[in-house]
Design a protein around this nucleic acid. Structure first.
Lengths: 336, 336
DNA sequence: ATGAAAGCGCTAACAG
DNA sequence: CTGTTAGCGCTTTCAT
C-alpha cells in the first residue's frame, strides 16, 4: 500500500489513457458484459503500459467481499494444525482466496476477540477451538458465519463441522491388537480436559465392556514425549502386553523409555500411537498408529466454507475415520 | 463481509444515533484529538448499542494501509518455515497486524505472481524464496517493498535480509568433532542446488584446507531421511569416524541406517545434524546439532518490516549464528 | 455498448 | 471542539 517508484496506477488513469470511462475499464478488467473489441484492446493496452492492476482493497470495499478467509487455531506448533493449515491454504489458494492465520496461544478470551476481528477482514472463518465453552461458541457462531468448525460440533445450528472419529481409530487399533492375541491393554491417557482424549477413553471403555475380550488398564499420562517417557516403568508394572498411547508423541516417549528399560518392542510389549505425525514412521521400531487425514481436513474445510460463500448446501457434520497404519511397533502377544 | 442477523452497523448509523457527524464518531473511535467528554460518551454509547466496530476494509482504503503483512514460503511442510511462520505471526500479532500466508509449492513462476498480488493487499512482505534467480529477485524487490528476505541477500539494495550463518554452524560442529579427536570426517551433502548446502560445503572445504587437521570426504546425499538412510553403508566404507549431515533429517536417516548395520553410535561413529528440528532431541542417541533460531528469525522479520513501515532505519543484513547443541550422537573418536 | 453518477465505509483537511 | 467536504479506488445501476 505504500509508494515506491511511480505511484500505483489507478483505474482513473487507465480510463484517461484509453480515453474511456472508468466503468468500461472495470468491465474490461473483469471480463464483464460485452465491450467493443476495439475499446477493450485500447483498455488492455493502456493497462499494460501503466502496469495497472485493480486494487484488491478498493474492490473489497465495493464488492463487500475480500477473497480472504481466516484460520484460527490455539497453537501453530501443533502438527495437527500445521497440516490443516497447509491443506486449507492450498485449497483456498487454488480458488483464488488468501488465508489469514491467527494463533490464540490457547488463550480463550483472546480467541473470541481474534475471531470476531478477523471475520471483519474476511469472508469466512475456519475455527479450531478445543477449549472455548460451548455456550460461548454458540453465541459467537452467528457473528462469525460463514464458519467451519474443526473438531467441535454445534448440533442444530447448521454450522458445518469436521471432526476426527477418534473412537473408530481406537476401535481399529484395538481390533488390531486383539488379532495379535493381546488381552491386557494399557491406555496412556491424554490431558483429561481434552475432548479427543475423552473420545478415546469412551471408545476403550465401550470396547472392553462389550466384548469382554480384553482388560483395560488406564494410566494418567499427558500429551508429550516426556509424559510418555515417564510412564515406561508404570506400563511394565501393569503387566499389559500392549499399550495404546494417547498420541504419537506419548507413544514415542514410552517407546524410548521402554527401550531404556531393556524391554523389547514389540517382542515383549506392543505399542500404538495416534495421529501419524511425520516422525511416526521413523521411530525404532516404526509406530503403528491411526493416521488422521489432517490435510484432507484442511481441504474439506475450504469446501464447506466455499459452499457457504456461494450459498450452496453444506454438509453439516463430516467425520473422518483415521486410517490404521500397521508398522513395526506392534506384534504378537508374548506367550507366557 | 456477508450479512447475518442485523446488518453490520456503519459509522453513519452511529453518527445519526448519537446526533453527531461521522467525523466525530471517527475521532472518538480512534481516540483522536479532543472531543467533548459529553459527546464522546454519547458516541461510545451509541456504538455499543449498535454493536458497532469500524470496517477494517474501509479503513484500509481510506488510510492506504491494511495492518496486514504476508509471508511467502516455498513449502509450508518445512519445519524451518513453520517456525518462522509462528514467530512472525506472533510478533506481528502483538503489534496488531494480521498475517497472510502463501505457499508457492516450490513453483518459482507462481511465486512472483503470488508475491506481487499479495503485496497489494498488504503493507509488506516477508519472502523466503530459495530458488528465485537473483536477477528476478532484484527486479521484484522494488515492487514488493517494504520487503524482508529470509536466507537470501540483495547487497546494495537496502533490502533487509535475515540469514542463518551456516558456515559458523558447521565451524562449531567441526570444532566439536575435532576436540573429540576425529580426524576423518564424512559430509553427507544436501541438494546441490541449495545455497545453504553450498554454504556448508564451502565452510568445510575452508576448514579442512586451513588447519589441515582433518580429512574431508564428501558424499552426495540429499535432504531427506531416506537419503540419509541409504548412505549408511557408504559412510562406513569411507573409514570416517564422524559424519556431518546436511541436516537433521539426513542425520536421522543415517543414524537409523547405521543402527541397522550394527554400528554403535557414538562408539564407532559420531554423527551431527543441522537445524534442531523438534525431533532431534528424541532420536537414539539424541542428535548433536546446530540449532537454527527459527522463531527468532520470524520475530526479527517483523521487527525489520515494522521498521520499514514506520520509516525507521533497518538493519540491512542480520546473520544468525546457530547454537551448538551437544547431545548423545557425538563422542570421542575410537582409538584404532 | 458505453458513460454518468452514486455508493461501499471510513479518514482527513479545512473551516468555523 | 465540531461539522462539512472531499476523497481512497472500484463496481454498478441507470440512462442513453
Amino acid at each position: 500500500m505504500s509508494e515506491n517508484g511511480r505511484p500505483t496506477a489507478t483505474i482513473r488513469r487507465v480510463a484517461e489513457a484509453a480515453g474511456v470511462s472508468r466503468a468500461t475499464v472495470s468491465r474490461v478488467m473483469n471480463g464483464r458484459s460485452t465491450v467493443a473489441p476495439e475499446l477493450a484492446a485500447r483498455v488492455l493496452e493502456a493497462a499494460r503500459a501503466l502496469d495497472y492492476a485493480p486494487s484488491p482493497v478498493a474492490r473489497s470495499l465495493a464488492l463487500g467481499r475480500t477473497a480472504t478467509i481466516a484460520l484460527i487455531v490455539p497453537d501453530l506448533a501443533n502438527p495437527m494444525f500445521q497440516d490443516v493449515l497447509r491443506g486449507l491454504s492450498q485449497a483456498a489458494g487454488e480458488d483464488g482466496h488468501r488465508l489469514i492465520v491467527a494463533e490464540s496461544n490457547e488463550n480463550v478470551a483472546n480467541e473470541e476477540v481474534l475471531a470476531v476481528e478477523a471475520r471483519r477482514r474476511c469472508d469466512g472463518i475456519v475455527l479450531a477451538s478445543p477449549r472455548l465453552p460451548t455456550e460461548d461458541l454458540e453465541r459467537l457462531a452467528p457473528l462469525l458465519s460463514p464458519l467451519v468448525l474443526i473438531n467441535r460440533k454445534l448440533p442444530g445450528t447448521g454450522v458445518p463441522s469436521l471432526s476426527v472419529d477418534h473412537g473408530a481409530g481406537i476401535g481399529d487399533l484395538v481390533a488390531h491388537l486383539l488379532s495379535l492375541g493381546h488381552r491386557r491393554i494399557a491406555y496412556l491417557s491424554g490431558p483429561s480436559a481434552s475432548i479427543s482424549n475423552q473420545d478415546r477413553v469412551d471408545a476403550l471403555l465401550r470396547l472392553s465392556a462389550e466384548g469382554r475380550e480384553f482388560e483395560l488398564v488406564q494410566l494418567a499420562c499427558g500429551a508429550t514425549f516426556e509424559n510418555g517417557h515417564a510412564m515406561a516403568g508404570a506400563v511394565v508394572e501393569t503387566g499389559a502386553t500392549a499399550v495404546v498411547a494417547y498420541n504419537d508423541m506419548v507413544a514415542f516417549g514410552a517407546l524410548s523409555g521402554l527401550h531404556e528399560l531393556g524391554i523389547p518392542i514389540p517382542g515383549r510389549l506392543s505399542i500404538t500411537g495416534f495421529d501419524d505425525i511425520p516422525f511416526a514412521r521413523y521411530t525404532t521400531p516404526p509406530l503403528t498408529t491411526a493416521a488422521v487425514p489432517k490435510n484432507v481436513l484442511g481441504h474439506q474445510a475450504w469446501t464447506q466454507l466455499s459452499n457457504q460463500l456461494h450459498n450452496n448446501p453444506t454438509q453439516n457434520q463430516a467425520t473422518f475415520r483415521p486410517r490404521l497404519l500397521v508398522r513395526g511397533s506392534t506384534g504378537r502377544a508374548p506367550t507366557p
